[in-house]
Design a protein around this nucleic acid. Sequence first.
DNA 1: ACCCTTTGTCCTGTGAGTGGAAAAAGTAGG
DNA 2: CCTACTTTTTCCACTCACAGGACAAAGGGT
Lengths: 396, 396
Amino acid sequence: MRRMTARPANAHQARLLRLLRDGGPNSRAQLGDQVDLSRSKLAVEVDRLLETELVVADGLAASRGGRRSHNIRLNPHLRFLGVDIGATSVDVAVTNAELEILGHINQPMDVREGPVAVFEQVLSMAAKLKASGLAEGFDGAGIGVPGPVRFPEGVPVAPPIMPGWDGFPVREALSQDLGCPVMVDNDVNLMAMGEQHAGVARTVHDFLVVKIGTGIGCGIVVGGEVYRGTTGSAGDIGHIQAVPDGRPCACGNRGCLEAHFSGAALARDATEAAQQQLSAELASRLEANGTLSAVDVAAAAAAGDATALDLIREGGNRTGQVIAGLVSFFNPGLVVIGGGVTGLGHTLLAAIRTQVYRGSLPLATGNLPIVLGELGPTAGVIGGARLISDHLFSPA
Amino acid sequence: MRRMTARPANAHQARLLRLLRDGGPNSRAQLGDQVDLSRSKLAVEVDRLLETELVVADGLAASRGGRRSHNIRLNPHLRFLGVDIGATSVDVAVTNAELEILGHINQPMDVREGPVAVFEQVLSMAAKLKASGLAEGFDGAGIGVPGPVRFPEGVPVAPPIMPGWDGFPVREALSQDLGCPVMVDNDVNLMAMGEQHAGVARTVHDFLVVKIGTGIGCGIVVGGEVYRGTTGSAGDIGHIQAVPDGRPCACGNRGCLEAHFSGAALARDATEAAQQQLSAELASRLEANGTLSAVDVAAAAAAGDATALDLIREGGNRTGQVIAGLVSFFNPGLVVIGGGVTGLGHTLLAAIRTQVYRGSLPLATGNLPIVLGELGPTAGVIGGARLISDHLFSPA
DNA sequence: ACCCTTTGTCCTGTGAGTGGAAAAAGTAGG
DNA sequence: CCTACTTTTTCCACTCACAGGACAAAGGGT
């Protein structure tokens, strides 16, 4: 099928497309209630959108007491690709124009294998989704990578955990391979956009998303827009000092948050505890698998293992202290905790909450929810779809 | 004289007013180069502004090779009042519409005397400025208070160092007393706006201003706009924990930055050092004045006193560590250090820089200037004038 | 003086957008 | 089934903002 390359011609059309994306099918009248345009003007713009085939007619709407109206919806053939490249795995998903996930694949993969190998993988995953009949092609793709990105160009810059990616023209390369527009961003920012679009942050305009996975990062949303900082490294909180003269970190400093708590640090601590026979639970798991990960700690904690619980609590305390500082500084309306370690669940959350509510002033914490992300592993790919749709649904 | 109550009728006029404010007198042609409007449209809007008397003709401009053009400038009779209420003193200044300071008064005053007493003082200072012939009245006033403010209403909320101000309708009260529009904001935000308008931050869009005075606060500017947070307490970094299990703080926690370094903490430390005879310089100053302040420490340091230098360095290190965290998180394009203790100068700056450059990742610090504020005590009042002018020079 | 450049004014055409009227397509009630 | 009332949609005339060209005014350089 021919892909839709059309773009909205003006801000009104862009507005309408986003309303249809976020609100699903709508009648002209319902749209009119939301956009403050005259009926005539609205009709003209809708007609033009119908001509571009970005939107299509979709039968009759329910009556609101008078004449029934004809529904309008985004073209159901539109397909976006959301790609979330993590440190140790890749998620790829197809969505429709309303950003509903139609198919989702996850595969383990080490990002350190470099962009060429990773993209080969991503493309084959995308091809698999296509082959299963979910898409005939893609109208756009949003890519998340685990490191800072020069956003306008879509190029990773000096990513600590991704040697070989520095300066690689991700956006350009993938745009060629996929044959569609591509936007690239930090994976944490994608997660923030995902939670904003379809998760817990739907109604909040200023919030933080703390992603604790292999590393630790933070997405910052200001006035509904992701804030990326001057060089694209905003939210890089993994290397904030959490413990004075603490453990050495790969970055060269000591006591970085990431060195004390993250998927990687947790696995290390658990292995150590198992080897020292501090925890039977962890030791048996180590014996069984030959290695331990955050998932094992979560399972052990769920089974009531005291050592595992202690590890989680201590990590949560460290993280909570850092977040307390950020809350004082940024005064967000919501803090979302997400990433691989959300499996640690409420033990972690409780520890973080305790530190934040204790360490920040009442004015900042008074009405501050601190919650787990709602979307889990889909947050990133939904965020990717959202990223590219925001780009495509803006005036050309 | 009758005050100008006119407001720009549309975004174009607002744009022109701001250009004239920031760029001084300009010809129609020069304005045309900056606004992307047709000459006819521009002429119409300028004529309308002339009618409202917000702008006036101002003689002929220099020739650019052809016919000389008539200059346009903001009405030279316009007057803004900038008020910076600090913890221990009040600054009041009059500016013209280009935000140039025409007169500036500073008086010591304890903010804890409460809003009524302070406003009495402010009004008498404003009256003095009027009496000296600098203004016949005020077209608007911008007020800074040392605590969080619910910005839309202009009301302080739960200010720790200003008991008695909580919920006091500052904006409304002063608007009545002064008979002109008033906007109220946190003093640190005002300082940030001042440095943005006329100081070191003129060309930067995302930056932080750290004000170290009686307390410590931080102004956050995102995309050229001050960010105030969900409840108006953004930038309240004085109570971030800088020292685990450190000194007790008035807020109830231990180890807050403000408890370890600020004008108040510095004075306390210096007094203690003097009493313990650790520094002859400080001891003699204590004897002479009966009390020590940050100014004494600055003087002692300038005289080469080792104890004073140590105090400054240690404070700078603590502050630098906190700022390093903020830099990692926020990735600003500039960090400005200001407030009462800027007298401590380059010793302080060097300590802060060391910590930030060491404690943040190269990508964030690579091209990050950390500088002292350029405007000193005028930053706040200029920021106040800027605040109200931004408000008045926006479509009604 | 003469020519060129810049500035300011005037005027008309165009296109966006509004708002009212009427037609179209329903629902609810007798 | 017919009537009265709603809501939706289309149509149309009118307003208004704005662009951009023509032209006049005012200067500089030679």
